[in-house]
Design a protein around this nucleic acid. Structure first.
Lengths: 344, 344
DNA sequence: TCCAGTTACCGAAACGTTTCGGATTGCTTC
DNA sequence: GAAGCAATCCGAAACGTTTCGGTAACTGGA
């Protein structure tokens, strides 16, 4: 291992000046900078990061903490998140560690964050799936630990986050349907306590309210967004055909796949009898083009979040002002063949 | 952040003695050790790992490097590996970082290992899916970088590995069939260049040779171990019924699922017409009990490898002798209903 | 000639820990 | 009363980097 001392001896310069040359300080002449660079290259110099960490008080490592739940290996979204973040941080020369606690460990997860932050093992954290009042967020905020949240909880006090525009896309989907003349619109969304569902529900409600429509609780369903949810929810909503919806807003394309199946088995046509619209996060197997008829969607690839998340966390670690650390990922609206005016 | 200096001041002891008390050195009296522990607890002391790393020359971080290939999110085995290793290392207070290079980056992967090891970013690596002559292994060996391999390549010179007993289990499966009287036995295994397939093939061959059987190249198939492989390979092997096998050894249970399907569509019964046997790594959706008839298997859960892999890598980092760093995971043989003597 | 300003450089401290070599005490033993 | 020995303790160096506060040499203007 070559060190700065080796380089300085080899060049007849002080350690200080070599360090400053390598780090691009202005008070180094062009000539010596070139000499230093060349020598560093020749002697194969790599800065020792432990030493750098010691003086900077940073570790250059960020973490993602989760419990190792049984089904975790089948959770494609989780995996996509891990690989996406991993690649994004690698590209920024930050180490990304996945910290899984055993599923048998039923204790509180907050001490894990504490233990890893104190002593400087980790510089910050990525959190996903926040609850509206998330204890982890409360805790990290009060202890001034840098973090970034994928998706938002309640917003007071403000904290760093990156989120798809959940309120906006739900509003867009629902208002597209109201504009077509629908008056009974259903929503099949994700697990109720999660913040992103709250936001989507809020956007959905605003569109209904603006169109002067009453909300029907029987037409709102929450649950894990799978094909099965779409299928069972649809079947149930059409139990009483007189009160059944004429349009369905789906949390993702997988849900709408189940909806298509249910409608097919009820001999109802899309879009003549029922319009279907979904949000496409471009991550699941169910691609909206593959539907017959092709699915109208709002589109916002989850994969667009990884780079902003990495940048935001790095910003939070460097104590950038909060204003620069809150990002909303925009969405596209893509009208295809699954939406039409309601039957007469 | 409380430091050793704070503690020593608070206790009226030297930094040295506090450090030694905390680290369990023998030349500290019981009384002061207790006092130190209590104070450390009181002042919420956590050692600064950057400082510790600087003096120890370690980083406490190990890595797993892979290219972020398109299908990676659907690769359950990869994901199971990542989560399993992550949990195993977390439990040992070692940081585990997943390092994914962009799929667009087509360059050689070896410099990535170099860059991360030099400068002390990472202490060692976990490698999976070794080739028989693996360049990564060659390179890490010559540069004395600690690593552990899951599965083995060629064994000279020896290096640290953890592996299921591939040769043994293939031998066990095949010799079970020869003992039953089968004389035409097929093998449907994994990608040919991978080391584990070579070992399985060797075990398979030995069993055949011991039974005095000729090997039929048409009865040996390699490929990605999916249902589709089992299905197509079986259909092809039964193209000429006179030369068709009477028993099939499958690389995993997913393959045997395809084999069952093919045999069903050929109106052949298991085990009366054809015996089927597989290796069960207890990781895929296809559980051997769920087969009809239930599948005879050798069983060796992949999940049993994570803890030994972590221990072995940590041993390699601590320069333990090579003899303690090579582990073979044993397997069980579970006879169920899918194997019987060949038809008369 | 003197002074101020710029440019290029350097010494030393600091980050928090581990560890080497030695120092101090109190007790036994001859 | 000195020597030997174990039990405790401590000072200081070391790990490799960044950075603060300075110094020296040179420039140009008055």
């Amino acid at each position: 291992m070559t060190t700065l001392k080796d380089l300085s001896r080899h060049l007849g310069l002080s350690i200080t000046q070599v360090s400053r040359a390598l780090n691009g300080y202005p008070d180094v002449s062009k000539k010596t900078r070139d000499r230093v660079m060349e020598a560093a290259d020749l002697l194969n110099y790599t800065p020792n990061i432990a030493a750098r960490n010691l003086v900077s008080g940073r570790s250059g490592v960020v973490g993602f903490i989760s419990r190792n739940l049984p089904g975790i290996a089948k959770n494609t979204i989780f995996f996509e998140t891990v690989t996406g973040l991993s690649e994004a941080f690698s590209a920024r020369d930050v180490q990304f560690v996945l910290h899984l606690t055993p599923e048998t460990d039923t204790g509180d997860i907050i001490p894990v964050y504490d233990r890893l932050f104190r002593g400087g093992t980790l510089d910050g954290f990525v959190l996903v799936d926040p609850l509206p009042e998330d204890l982890r967020i409360q805790h990290l905020l009060t202890h001034k630990v840098p973090f970034v949240v994928h998706g938002r909880g309640e917003m007071e006090p403000p904290y760093p986050y990156v989120d798809v525009d959940n309120r906006g896309l739900a509003y867009r989907m629902a208002s597209h349907l109201t504009a077509l003349g629908h008056r009974r619109i259903a929503l099949i969304s994700g697990p109720e306590p999660l913040a992103f569902c709250r936001f989507r529900l809020a956007g959905f409600r605003r569109a209904l309210a603006e169109a002067g429509l009453e909300e029907n609780p029987a037409h709102i369903r929450h649950g894990f967004m799978t094909e099965a949810l779409g299928l069972t929810a649809t079947i149930q909503m059409f139990g009483d055909p007189a009160r059944a919806p004429t349009a369905i807003v789906c949390g993702n394309t997988l849900v709408s796949k189940g909806v298509y199946q249910a409608l097919g088995s009820l001999s109802l046509r899309v879009p003549e009898d029922v319009s279907v619209i979904a949000h496409d996060d471009a991550i699941l197997a169910a691609s909206p083009e593959s539907f017959a008829p092709a699915l109208t969607v709002t589109r916002s690839p989850l994969a667009d979040s990884w780079a902003p998340l990495a940048d935001t966390l790095i910003g939070a670690i460097n104590r950038k002002p909060i204003g620069t650390l809150q990002k909303i990922i925009p969405f596209d609206f893509i009208e295809r063949a699954s939406t039409a005016p309601p039957p007469a």
